[in-house]
């Protein structure tokens, strides 16, 4: 299987603290991979490094063979890596439709002058953008919510909208940061199906951070476990679940012995 994203000895230090320390792993093309670990293990930091929000202290990040660790966040997004956030970050005052329409911007190429003068190219490409946003909302089951202000959406739908907005960029790799946080088992189940569906429909690879073990074990084909910024284990869900070190990290040494 080919590799879409590879981390090579990735390190991030904040002052004297190594939040991520020499972490290496691969995300398989077209797969759903999981990134797990106790609180403070450095999972979100890794997402911030991949997307360019933080600059790496050492190591390399290769996206489809291309080093991206020195690029700006918007360039990385342009290459095809998008993400969602642990604490949802929507364009709150905008309607559901405008949230998605805004994120479609890269599909149009008209310039400022063309926009200000409303030249034919502007009209043509704007129409295409509206159609794209429409069809995305349809696919993601948000069609009857297009006019709602994002802030007024129920929590579960806000998550769904955030994923829809990420898909508007036609990503090759989707990073989901605790998508099931605050969801009940029913909603988590729905979300699992949605992630699997999105992966096959949009032909992309997914890397997901999650604490809900049923979601991780149910949906991921490959899991990487972190603890205190270091790699603890790497393998299939079964391998990882039976790894004594992983059990210890999650339950504590005393509990694990029982």
């Amino acid at each position: 299987m080919s590799v879409v994203l590879e981390l090579k000895g990735l390190t991030k230090r904040f002052g004297g603290l190594a939040a991520v320390n020499d972490v290496s792993f691969k995300v398989r093309e077209g797969g759903i991979s999981g990134l797990i670990g106790p609180n403070g293990a450095g999972k979100t930091t890794i997402f911030n490094l991949i997307t360019g929000v933080y600059k790496v202290s050492g190591g390399a990040i290769e996206f489809r063979g291309l080093p991206v660790q020195d690029k700006e966040p918007y360039q990385i997004a342009g290459l095809g890596i998008t993400r969602t956030f642990q604490n949802i970050r929507l364009f709150k005052e905008l309607s559901v439709f405008d949230n998605v329409l805004t994120a479609c911007h890269a599909s149009a190429k008209y310039g400022l002058t063309e926009a200000v003068l409303r030249l034919p190219r502007f009209r043509r490409e704007e129409k295409a953008l509206h159609e794209k946003a429409d069809s995305l909302l349809e696919i993601m089951g948000l069609r009857d919510r297009t006019d709602v202000t994002a802030n007024n959406l129920p929590y579960g739908l806000q998550r769904r909208l955030e994923i829809t907005r990420a898909l508007a960029l036609d990503p090759k790799l989707l990073l989901l940061d605790e998508p099931a946080a605050g969801m009940n088992p029913d909603e988590t189940e729905q979300l699992m199906r949605l992630i699997a569906e999105v992966r096959s429909r949009f032909e992309l690879s997914v890397l997901v951070i999650e604490h809900h073990m049923d979601l991780i074990m149910g949906v991921c084909e490959h899991i990487h476990v972190l603890s205190f910024g270091c790699t603890l284990a790497d393998g299939t869900p079964d391998e990882v679940a039976n790894d004594p070190q992983v059990v210890e990290a999650y339950l504590g040494a005393e509990e694990a012995k029982k």
Binding site: V53, A77, F85, R89, L90, T102, A106, A115, F122
Partner: peptide, 22 residues
Amino acid sequence: SRHGRNLVAVREEELAAQMAGI
């Protein structure tokens, strides 16, 4: 226009705007 919508995105949520390739 798309430029104007990007401006609003920057106002609404700068980090999310970056992640949307703006």
